[in-house]
């Protein structure tokens, strides 16, 4: 294969909710700007590495019903995360593996087989303007991505310049042992939250021994969970403070909300616990109706899990040299 030109893609159908995402818009939470970014960072990083991109390159996050895309240039792509039955010109294509998609091909998706969100990486990344240091779409504030909104029919997307070793990437795949399996129930490990003291021992025990269901009122901002009510000890007004992805906040109705990528930067409900970083990619793949069970974990264990996951991934698929862009640290 010759040197690849940047990808050119026409959106024939937008799908249910397809957005441009990278690893998030850091450095502006003090201004109230949500981090957003891919819900499943693991699948995003894997998709990027499979096509020779830096981990921070922008990908498409496709939710349940994927888009239909026409590729007007030959390029290399990889699809990770949920299995939404991807096909090219009607023939099934593999997930967790990169492949060449020829000029004039149509990529479409069928019924979801497992998980909720698929990630499509294109050699060179999706080229949309950086807004406050990131390409992520936060549609509530119409920030980033393609005009701050999900993809729709008639949109045109361009890729960036593919990495120098793209030819060597073709056919690269994530070893089977590292591929996550998504079911309709997940155990999420949690560490005690900053306001765990607002809740009684009994409440916490009940929460740990109950199943919670992801309710239909769930989106990129957060999942409302239905299950055993979590009671506060007192009714003192709680003063808003900083939130984090994975935080479980408890509103007065006692039904916890799991904060996800598009969460607000600050929140006015106490946070009983926080899901560990290493389990968030699994949380990202849950759909309404799926069940969650919580398991206690220490922050040291949480960190060990994260490090082990990353070491395993680096051994199988080393990161590519970073492109010239913000490294995600605070820019001011």
């Amino acid at each position: 294969m010759k040197e690849l030109p940047p990808a050119e893609i026409v959106v024939l159908k937008g799908g249910w909710l397809t957005t441009v995402q990278d690893l998030g818009r850091y450095g502006y939470q003090h201004d109230g700007v949500s981090v957003s970014g891919a819900m499943d960072s693991f699948s995003t990083i894997v998709a990027n590495r499979l096509v020779g991109n830096s981990d921070q390159a922008a990908v498409l996050e496709c939710t349940l019903k994927g888009p239909e895309l026409l590729f007007e240039q030959e390029t290399v792509i990889a699809i990770t995360g949920a299995d939404l039955s991807p096909t090219v010109n009607g023939a099934s294509v593999p997930t967790w593996q990169s492949f060449v998609i020829s000029r004039g091909s149509r990529l479409s998706f069928g019924p979801p087989q497992s998980g909720c969100r698929a990630y499509l990486a294109i050699a060179g990344g999706i080229d949309v303007p950086l807004v406050l240091g990131s390409r992520s779409t936060h549609y509530a504030s119409e920030t980033g991505g393609l005009q701050g909104r999900p993809l729709q029919q008639g949109d045109a997307l361009r890729g960036g310049n593919p990495g120098p070793f793209i030819n060597r990437q073709i056919g690269a795949e994530l070893p089977d042992a590292l591929r996550p399996r998504y079911g309709h129930a997940a155990t999420l490990h949690i560490t005690p939250g900053p306001q765990v003291d607002c809740f009684g021992e009994q409440s916490i025990r009940m929460m740990m021994s109950s199943d919670y269901t992801v309710s239909p009122q769930s989106d990129r901002m957060g999942y409302r969970l239905a299950g055993t009510k979590i009671a506060r000890k007192g009714l003192d007004q709680f003063i808003s403070d900083g939130t984090a992805m994975g935080a479980l906040q408890v509103p007065p109705d006692g039904q916890p909300i799991l904060l996800m990528a598009d969460r607000q930067t600050t929140g006015g409900y106490p946070k009983i616990a926080v899901v560990i970083s290493g389990d968030l990619p699994f949380a990202a793949q849950l759909v309404p109706g799926d069940r969650i069970r919580f398991a206690q974990c220490s922050v040291a264990e949480a960190r060990a899990t994260m490090r082990r996951q990353r070491a395993d991934l680096d051994a199988a698929l080393p990161p590519h040299v970073q492109q010239l862009r913000s490294d995600g640290t605070r820019s001011q």
Binding site: Y26, H30, V35, I239, G242, A244, T266, R310, R330
Partner: peptide, 18 residues
Amino acid sequence: IHDIVPTYRSVTVHFDPL
């Protein structure tokens, strides 16, 4: 260090766990 967020009565510091 990703973000430093002052609020009413606290500061939240977000960091890369790696």
